[in-house]
Nucleic acid binder design. Structure first.
Lengths: 345, 345
DNA sequence: CTCATCCGTTGTAGCGCTTCAATCGAGGCC
DNA sequence: GGCCTCGATTGAAGCGCTACAACGGATGAG
């Protein structure tokens, strides 16, 4: 025991060690791992025991090499700071779980270069397919141009029905319409839309829905305010700016393109007597962020089905990979209204 | 060309296809991929061209199987909603980049079961090592108990110097001290600490630092307020509650355990005349969140070096993997002060 | 001119696993 | 009893790549 044979091997045990200990062939161990039903009860038990004793952990690389495919899908997130994307990740994980797949995350930080890099990294990993969140048509074009149609890609949060890719997105126009309708239904008639720069596609879509709702209610077009961005401080400034018009009854409802914006508006208006939200004016936001529920006056909002988006996207991807007759589809999900104090009457 | 030999192979090209097209051996292609300097100029060019023409993408599984190791490290994040963790991810990626490694993310959502699952998944993947973010001593104990000391793990955001693991964390006590000192330096003397339930270790640490600063300044202990949680609405309630004492001069400085808390406090106080932040009272938060900078009155705060934490953690991990004489270390980083309007004098 | 050197290149043995055809034994049936 | 069937088990052929030893030809020294 003290010479050659005694060489300690700190290397982790392999399938053959398990087979030896259990007194079976490595094929049986492999079966026990992948096709339990093919292995007889007692044999299975011995193998399981051996696996436990050795602390055997199958080598993923070898498995996927031999099997010719992996059991995972890739998800490239463009903005980890945005709770929508976190929800997407959750939904994707749920769908993957159901299929016995696992999800590998990557964070592109909205940078095209990193998006590319991760799509390529995923290609090397031979994931079953990739889910890519986009916030921008320019990124879509870039990816579509560069991407050699090797592996399946599903685009999330972007709508494209030219049939080149599957896409799943949330209907911002419908959301804007929903928000405006809610205020109209609660009797507001002098409604203003507040929403960031027009370079943000979601904002312009939400505004389009807002306008449609007003037109449908035969209301004259109201003016719209376009702050520099969609943060709380932008909202605060807008709120200050709007105070007079609220006081003289010129404005009795505000649709904001984001919850932060709405929270800033409510905050500014609350500081001004005798304005009261929701008595004097109703305010509704968008996104169902923490900013909307975690406020002195909880803010009504439009909730985006982010988790469902992730779920649906993963299903599309799985279909694309498995169904031989797959056709690209463009799914659009509808947001829902969450009514809170800020629009109570 | 119309029979047997014509069978289209939609399977992606392998290294041997590249070798054939370039007219070299597969060994040379492999060298071109992994040790460019070993391959002569013209040969390299032919190989690169062949790779381009075929759209060859090396198979990661085969690579790591043959090489016996992967080029990636795993990172398990416990809370994607918290910007600290996003920063950690950034830092980790930067460190990994420098080492030519890539980072695989996983989201445990703070659930022990998912933490376990991902640590195991990473074990199968044979990543070089795992970075695990923790927010809780109980999780630490659970992991430490269950984890068979196979692969290297570095704990992030948790301090443990028993030498069983490397850890990297941020010194909350120092942060609390820093916040209090800042108010003291700007002449405040009647300072209150506002911080969530005592079950949150970071909160109690920050309070300890706060107390030490007061003691060092020979100030009598002030009372402390413990809201139910650390959100904006909790802060708002505290602000209301404190208004009278601010008005009558009993309180002239507030240290909050989080930026949301601070933002809520500032918001509540701003609504009450004639209180002014920072003229009547200074308020400082913690975390350097969006809530702190994106507010009508930008809020001073303690910034946690999250990115550095991720960076340092990754370095520790790499050292643990590569240095033969590695010893576990427990690194503690120091937060920094960011002074803004809310504490200006 | 011969021999040692050196660099670029190549053949090939695995890496640890899955898979599939082949094998074995135990019944079941006529 | 002989023959067939069927489930459990196994041997061995790769999966696509890396690493390493071996090779060959060019160069320079002696």
């Amino acid at each position: 025991m003290s010479d050659a044979a005694a060489r300690e091997e700190p290397t982790s045990p392999g399938i053959k060690d398990v087979a030896a200990l259990a007194g079976v062939s490595i094929a049986s161990v492999s079966n026990a791992l992948n096709h339990r039903e093919r292995v007889a009860g007692p044999t299975l038990e011995r193998i399981d025991r051996a696996i436990g004793m050795l602390g055997y952990i199958p080598n993923g690389a070898a498995r996927s090499l031999a099997a010719g495919r992996t059991r995972s899908i890739g998800l490239v997130l463009s903005d980890l700071g945005n709770s929508l994307f976190i929800d997407i990740a959750r939904g994707t994980e749920r769908a993957a779980d159901e299929q016995g797949l696992s999800v590998v995350l990557a964070n592109s930080d909205g940078k095209l270069e990193r998006e590319d890099r991760y799509v390529e990294l995923f290609a090397e990993t031979r994931v079953r397919g990739v889910l890519l969140t986009l916030n921008d048509a320019s990124h879509f074009r870039a990816i579509a141009g560069r991407h050699a149609h090797g592996q399946p890609i599903v685009m999330l949060n972007f709508h494209d029905d030219t049939g080149r890719y599957c896409t799943a997105s949330i209907d911002n126009e419908a959301g804007g319409h929903l928000a405006a309708s809610h205020l109209l239904e609660t009797g507001r008639r002098r409604i203003v839309f507040v929403g960031g720069p027009d370079t943000l596609q979601p904002v312009t879509d939400r505004r389009a829905g807002f306008r449609r709702a007003l037109v449908e209610a035969s209301l004259a077009p109201v003016d719209e305010i376009s702050p520099a961005w969609v943060n709380r401080s932008d909202g605060w400034q807008v709120g200050r700016q709007l105070a007079d018009r609220v006081l003289n009854g010129e404005v009795d409802g505000i649709v904001a393109a984001s919850d932060l914006l709405a929270a800033g508006i409510v905050q500014a208006l609350s500081e001004i007597r005798p304005i009261s939200v929701p008595d004097t004016v109703s305010v509704i936001g968008y996104d169902n962020n923490q900013a909307a529920w975690d406020a002195p006056i909880p803010i009504s909002t439009i909730s985006q089905p982010g988790e469902e988006l992730g779920y649906v996207g993963a299903r599309l991807l799985v279909d694309e990979v498995e169904a031989p007759d797959h056709e690209h589809r463009a799914i659009r999900l509808t947001p829902t209204l969450i009514a809170r104090r800020s629009t109570e009457r």
